[in-house]
Design a protein around this nucleic acid. Structure first.
Lengths: 252, 252
DNA sequence: AGAATAGTGTCTTTAAGACAATATGGC
DNA sequence: GCCATATTGTCTTAAAGACACTATTCT
């Protein structure tokens, strides 16, 4: 059948005639608590892979979601109640075997949220509007679970992206509350990178590159009070001029 | 309807019951010729957007393609005849308005190929097995065209990824033949970055980081013969320790 | 005073940028 | 010898790493 115009073509077009892959979005929602990087997992309440732990995600709602980011954002709000955390696409994985229902594609995102803010919201909305049970799991524990589908691999991709971006961006600031001390921020970086950082270099880098700015407040928590800083850039994707190095050989 | 086992669920599952977005892969195939970055565009021979220039791409073949990369690779081979160029995912874009047929998602890739190798293959297989007309277009020209769908935006994304990776990886080497001179390689970098680079810094960087290695051959092309080098890493994703800087203020 | 945490001084190191100088081969 | 292009020498600069030192508060 041939058509003489775009309009005529479109009026005859029926996408159900074609075999399309399943398409979902999945996300790794990260947070830091108890000195460890945590990820929010849900327990699947439906087939397939019922009762397994999985990354939150699901199908696009073609009538509600205007674009991929909006769809992911909607799911994130449903799970956490948080409106504007950092959300970023990691990769898109698709193959014939990852889902027993058939050829399936997933767009993988990761989100970074402040654990304290999540707790505040979670206690407010006592009744979660989700039927799925969810839980924060440390990365170390998550890697030991038998996650649904290829979600272990997806989780690895997301962690790798996060830690590689922590080497040259201010991204980890999005895991912090509005005001924070540089020591607190450094601890978050160290958890993400799995490596300890030089205090002086870290502070100099943050301040001199203009990533953070002093506030007039300080935080008293036992010992010497610490200066509170706030993030001083528009985007968490702020790039430092250089990468954080891996530890040098000859350091004691 | 409830199911008592995964098997029972799957035997009743019919994906056509659900409304899924259209899913395609698209790619920006880059090459350098005549001192300019070029992209391979095809002229669409079917509706929708018939007769418009577009990035090569299309639907997944669920029976032939094992995964997304394989599908993209197959399309790339169909267009260029080249088997193992660099191929990399850039991003996945999906929304309700980018395709008149409905909610559509595309996984965008870019490929880097040696223009000379392409010409050689193209003349070998005189009869291209593609019905679509394709043509190399310089980036400057491509940006002036009224490309199909949101392909102008996709092209921009791919170019941005390429040039940002040229700042800290050896990726542009994949646009070169097996053996090349450092001056030739530097020219490619300069075209991609749209910026001239310091000769000494460039050579030192390439050699000292171990990205390239001398061969015992040299190239005579008129004036002083130049040493031929080959790439000395496994992956084109080799990272240099630092980024190439933007030109300094006080340089003459 | 002592402990613990916050914050600074300052020397070293690494790799890039600037730019002048030298080398090689064709004509 | 002259020109064009290839290649090197070497000084400067930017920002990170190392590590010791000082500062502030609590008990």
């Amino acid at each position: 059948m041939t058509f003489s115009s775009e309009q005529e073509f479109l009026s005859h077009y029926n996408k159900k005639e074609f075999d399309a892959p399943l398409f979902t979005v999945d996300m790794a929602i990260f947070s830091v608590d108890a000195g460890q990087l945590q990820v929010l997992l849900i327990k699947r309440s439906n087939f397939p892979q019922k009762d397994k732990w999985a990354l939150p995600g699901g199908f696009i709602d073609l009538s509600k979601d205007t674009d991929l980011m909006a769809s992911t954002h909607r799911k994130l709000v449903e799970k956490t109640g948080l409106k504007s955390p950092h959300l970023e696409q990691v990769a898109t994985i698709g193959n014939a075997t990852r889902d027993p229902r058939g050829w399936a594609v997933t767009a993988l995102y990761f989100a970074l949220i402040d654990f304290k803010a999540f707790q505040r919201i979670a206690t407010e909305q006592t009744e979660q509007n989700t039927t799925e049970y969810s839980e924060w799991v440390s990365i170390a524990d998550a890697k030991k679970l038998d996650l649904a589908f290829d979600h272990l691999q997806l989780l690895d991709l997301a962690i790798e992206r996060l830690s590689s971006k922590a080497r040259y961006t201010a991204l980890p600031v999005s895991l912090m509350p509005e005001l924070f001390t540089l020591t607190e921020l450094q601890q978050i970086y160290e958890i993400i990178l799995g490596q300890s950082l030089e205090k002086k270099s870290f502070r100099r880098r943050m301040i001199e590159a203009g990533a953070v700015e002093e506030t007039d407040q300080s935080k008293i928590a036992g010992k010497r009070p610490a200066q509170l800083y706030r993030y001083a850039q528009d985007s968490f994707d702020f790039h430092f001029p250089r990468i954080l190095e891996y530890p040098r050989e000859n350091s004691k």
